[in-house]
Amino acid sequence: MSASAPGTTLHASGNGATVRKLARAGIVIDASCDVSPAFLADPDVAVIPIPIRIGKSTYVDQHDPEATARYMQENANGEGAHGQSIPLDAEQMRNFFTERFVLDYDSVYCLTITASRSPIHDAASQGSMMAMANIRDMRQTAGINRPFQFRVIDTKNMFAGSGIPAMALRDLLGRHVQPKDIRDELFRIIDATYTYYVPDNLGYARTRSRVRGDRSINLLSVMLGGALNIKPIIRGYHGDTHPVSKHRGRAEAWGRLFKFAAQRVADGLYTPHLIVSYAGPLADVYGTAEMAQLRTACEDAEVALHVLQMSMTGMMNIGPGGLTLAFSGPPHSEAP
């Protein structure tokens, strides 16, 4: 498949033999993907770092709590309107993949932020193809004759939305689902994942969104939003984003979104995870009555509710006080 396709799968085998069950599978995510601490603690998970430059300072986004705390402290809880992310290029991706996975794994899934907003997916696809040129020789030298698979997958979403398929994949691998069934189920989840964004500062969000090629926040909305404290709710789906509602103030916007999410949970999700990521102190999120209602809905439906610190990359792009919420479920036209 091409880099623009949902997934790119590459295979290398020392002797052309095939096996029915892959011995060990690894998961790669890029650092913009918001996932739980338990997911990150899995030894079979690796994070592609994303360097971020703000002024004269450089930070490395790789889900390190201390580095994230430093970034927030030095940049007003994540502000970086003029910051620049510096994703790894194809050559660096090749080195990262080769060093981390060639000898210890037979199957690797690399999930990235949507290709429509970032070059990471294309660089990972190119880097994986470059790495495969060396993998066969390295595995033969080490006496490993099992086939090797490397699949690069576009999550078609960002931040919390990229986290949903990543955590669903870990569940599938944990249940020892066969590779073909994993592929089909993972793409079904990706195609049904919705991310809702609530930027706290419209002017900031517009500046950063235009850097990503996103035109979902126009100038008039920024002017009116600043004067009236309007907070939009933006839906991300299939690599695209557009505003679906607007509300007076953060409390109203968050309340409507959390109630909306509770209803989606009650109606049934495709994977038992709902992720909320926030660019600020998590106590802000836990302190809302509607979050308590969402928590109860998740408990009743046996859905894991993950309230997380947003990645540095997410903070820089959405801005301080920004929030994202994501889940995978049936199509819906209604909005928060």
Rank of each mutant, 00 (worst) to 15 (best):
V265H: 06
I164N: 10
R100V: 08
E74Y: 04
P272E: 00
G26Q: 09
K21P: 00
P199I: 06
F327Y: 15
P272A: 08
Y71C: 09
P43A: 07
K259N: 12
S209Q: 14
R146K: 13
H176R: 13
Y270C: 10
S333R: 10
P331M: 05
V60D: 09
K56N: 15
H121I: 13
P243Y: 02
G161V: 04
D240I: 05
R215I: 00
L325G: 08
T195S: 05
D34G: 02
D122F: 03
V28P: 03
S277P: 03
T313W: 04
G226Q: 12
A304H: 10
F327K: 14
I234Y: 02
E74N: 13
E79Y: 09
A38R: 15
A81I: 14
Y204C: 10
P37K: 07
L103T: 03
A123H: 15
T313I: 11
T18F: 00
A124S: 02
G78E: 09
P179L: 06
G55F: 09
P6L: 02
I135W: 12
R170L: 06
V198T: 07
F187S: 10
D137V: 00
T68F: 06
I233H: 02
M223T: 11
G255E: 12
F150R: 11
S4N: 11
P49C: 08
D154G: 13
A41W: 04
D64R: 06
I190F: 04
I120T: 15
P281F: 02
K246V: 11
A17F: 03
Q263Y: 08
G78R: 09
T18P: 00
G319K: 00
F101Y: 13
F97A: 01
S57W: 00
V211N: 06
A25H: 01
R210L: 14
G322M: 04
I113N: 10
G80Q: 06
S328Q: 09
P281E: 11
H82C: 01
A251K: 15
P51A: 08
M223N: 05
G249P: 14
A253K: 05
H82Y: 07
I318W: 01
L219M: 11
M291S: 06
G55N: 11
A283S: 13
R170M: 08
T18H: 04
P51S: 01
S13P: 05
R136P: 00
S245C: 11
M315P: 00
N157F: 05
Y237D: 02
W254Y: 13
M132N: 03
K56C: 02
P243C: 05
